[in-house]
Design a protein around this nucleic acid. Structure first.
Length: 424
RNA sequence: GGAGAGGUGGCCGAGCGGCUGAAGGCUCCGCUCUCGAAAAGCGGUAUCCUGUGAAAACGGGAUCGUGGGUUCGAAUCCCACCCUCUCCGCCA
């Protein structure tokens, strides 16, 4: 959420910045609404002031045993008037709040302007894609042959876009979760958290999934509960409504959770394999930082996520999202894309963003500077470290042998009980 | 599911129609004392909105879980909702 005052005072700039992401809000209506809200407020406050003064007068008169009836009658009218104005004020405020909640974050000035993902500049390539003397197979083909993935049976249990792992596949998923958490908590100072996988409407609104993107979420029938689409939601909300101490910052959390997404609007995309599922596992990295360090923390978080791919020796590229491709809440985002040999493309496996104060304002997360009065909003930064299902897919494809077996990356072997290769 | 208790400032905790933005304590920040520190003493220490102002500042309003109601006036009374806790039942 943007600050209403900021919006009012910087309207042309905000308008221009948001237009680069394709946002077309009626700012005219917004400004009018805000102006009329302030007019009403002024009138209400005057009346209230009068009421406060006279009420005290009445109290004093009563103490002296004087008759205050005429004042009481006058105040009765004032109160009625206040009630009427109050109603129009709160209607205006609700309207403004709704508009603000629907407004995306302003892209950071460093973000390249562009229309869609085709305009995302590649920042770097790391590692070399493996070369195969045979035609590399898709991970779903490999997984089904190795009897570690079974999408057909999964669809009986739940439907399309649900995973079912067996044996070494199930273990590989679990191994990766442990491996990722171990790296982030032991080598990078993140604190492990295991949050609820279901959250309320309030938490979803705080991180920006609601009110605009309800169709992307799984809602629990009959409850105001939603399945989390990412650990970002419960973890960011850990400190909702809190005022933190400056010395606590930055706070770093690493959380494993399953993620649930309706994938509405992605019909026909990635229909096979582990790439686009209604349910998938992810290790998420979340930071709460001081405003002046959030961009450094984003760079570090990106490196922390990259570390996983480096250790797994998977080749990848990092792209920077252009304004048109940026997510609703983000001010700046890097995507890490891992090489998928069968398709011959890089596929997103992590998304690392700085939300600046956008989520903090919605979630009311502040901090107090040492020796200074008042509070400031923190900045939130987060990213995947990494999406686990997609990592499994990448390992299967990049480490496949001509016979369809898959060699396991060194770093995972002890998590796999010493297993070195997955064979039929 | 049944019965009860409670939600107050950064934290703890009092208040239970006007003198309460809220006692007291803690934290934190200044100052005094000290070579310095500790202790002690003194003072300060919530947030949001809004008006005037370039700013500093000054003025006004709101906020005691949330939303309504009663009243000239509500942290205090009434109603609804949310949340937390305790006991009983059920249960991994």
């Amino acid at each position: 959420m943007l600050e209403i005052k900021f919006l009012r005072q910087n309207l042309p700039d905000v308008k221009k910045a948001l237009s680069t992401r394709g946002e077309t809000t009626d700012f005219e209506a917004f400004i009018n609404c805000d102006a009329s809200r302030r007019d009403t407020l002024l009138e209400i406050e005057e009346l209230r002031h009068r009421r406060n003064v006279v009420s005290e007068q009445i109290a004093n008169m009563k103490k002296e045993g004087e008759n205050a009836n005429s004042l009481v009658i006058e105040m009765r009218e004032v109160s009625t008037r206040i009630k009427v104005l109050d109603k129009s004020l709160s209607e205006n405020e609700k309207k403004l709040k709704d508009m603000l909640l629907d407004l995306p974050n302003i892209p950071h000035t460093s973000v390249p302007v562009g229309k869609d993902s085709s305009d995302n500049p590649v920042i770097k390539h790391v590692g070399k894609p493996p070369e195969f003397k045979f035609k590399p197979k898709h991970h779903w083909t490999l997984g089904e042959k190795l009897k570690i993935l079974d999408f057909e049976r999964a669809s009986k249990i739940a439907g399309a876009r649900f995973p079912l792992y067996f044996g070494a596949g199930a273990r590989l998923e679990r191994a990766l979760i442990n491996f990722m958490l171990d790296v982030q908590t032991k080598e990078h100072d993140y604190k492990e958290v295991l949050p609820p996988f279901i959250v309320n409407r309030h938490s979803m609104t705080n991180t920006g999934q609601l009110p605009k993107f309800e169709e992307d979420l799984f809602k629990i029938e009959g409850w105001e509960y939603f399945m989390i689409p990412t650990a970002e939601v419960p973890v960011t909300n850990i400190h909702q409504g809190e005022i933190l101490d400056e010395d606590q910052l930055p706070i770093l959390y690493a959380a494993y959770t399953p993620c649930f997404r309706s994938e509405a609007g992605s019909y026909g995309k990635d229909t096979r394999g582990l790439i686009r599922q209604h349910q998938f596992n992810k290790v998420e990295l979340v930071k709460f930082t001081r405003p002046e360090t959030s961009y450094d923390e984003l760079e570090k978080l990106l490196e922390d996520a990259e570390t996983i791919l480096k250790i797994l020796e998977l080749s990848y590229q990092v792209v920077e999202l252009c304004t048109g491709d940026l997510g609703f809440s983000a001010a700046k985002t890097y995507d890490i894309e891992v090489w998928m040999p069968a398709q011959g493309v890089y596929r997103e496996i992590s998304s690392c963003s700085n939300f600046e104060s956008f989520q903090a304002r919605r979630a009311d997360i502040k901090f107090r500077r040492k020796g200074k009065k008042g509070t400031e909003l923190v900045h939130t930064v987060n990213g995947s470290g990494l999406a686990v299902g997609r990592t499994v897919a990448a390992i299967l494809e990049n480490y496949q042998q001509a016979d369809g077996s898959v060699i396991l990356p060194e770093a995972l072997r002890h998590y796999m009980g010493g297993m070195e290769i997955i064979e039929p």
